[in-house]
């Protein structure tokens, strides 16, 4: 199914259709409406994306984008691109075999949060625990948000780009 058709079906929750600069085109969805969008993707018979493949959290530190100078002109000022945490949802339809990639850009740079979709897809529970564990993203409405891969008394969220490796752990030197 065409991405535009899907975006149309999902209505105004879709903020952006991204087809350039990526190999897999995706839709950017409003963060506050992700649960509703997920339920629609699953239940709407024309979409039928019933299987949640994965949820990925990613950390993009604010980065400077340098613009190319035109001939004979001074270089324009570089631009700082904000927004750091993103969640990427991969969906699959077991009926048609089609795939859909949705993305959510999270507000709040240091304490990112999002609605949990574990009500819609029970399998999201562990994915979200993983994103919480490794990236420190909080999920509202998650039944049991704990660390999953790191141990419970681990400090920090390892997949953040500003994570500092611990020098020791419970008296065991890591250097």
């Amino acid at each position: 199914m065409e991405l535009e058709t899907i975006a149309e079906r999902l209505g105004d929750a879709v903020l952006e259709i991204v087809t350039e600069g990526t190999k897999d085109p995706f839709l950017v969805v409003e963060a506050s409406r992700i649960r509703e969008v997920m339920a629609l993707c699953r239940d709407d018979s024309s979409l039928a994306f019933d299987l949640l493949v994965s949820i990925t959290g990613a950390d993009y530190p604010p980065r400077e984008v340098k613009k190319k100078a035109k001939k004979g002109e001074p270089a324009p000022e570089s631009e700082v691109v904000p927004g750091r945490f993103e969640l990427v949802y991969h969906l699959l339809s077991t009926k048609t075999g089609g795939r859909l990639v949705l993305k959510v850009r999270l507000p709040h740079e240091d304490a990112p949060s999002c609605d949990s979709i574990s009500e819609v897809h029970p399998a999201a529970e562990w994915h979200e625990r993983e994103a919480f564990d490794l990236l420190g993203i909080r999920f509202f409405g998650h039944p049991d948000l704990r660390r999953i891969l790191c141990c419970e008394d681990w400090v920090g969220h390892p997949l953040r780009k500003d994570y500092v490796f611990p020098k020791e752990f419970h008296g065991i030197s890591a250097e």
Binding site: G21, T22, K23, D24, V53, H90, V101
Partner: peptide, 8 residues
């Protein structure tokens, strides 16, 4: 090259 890819 820059881009986001999922392959399974």
């Amino acid at each position: 090259p820059r881009g986001e890819v999922y392959a399974a």
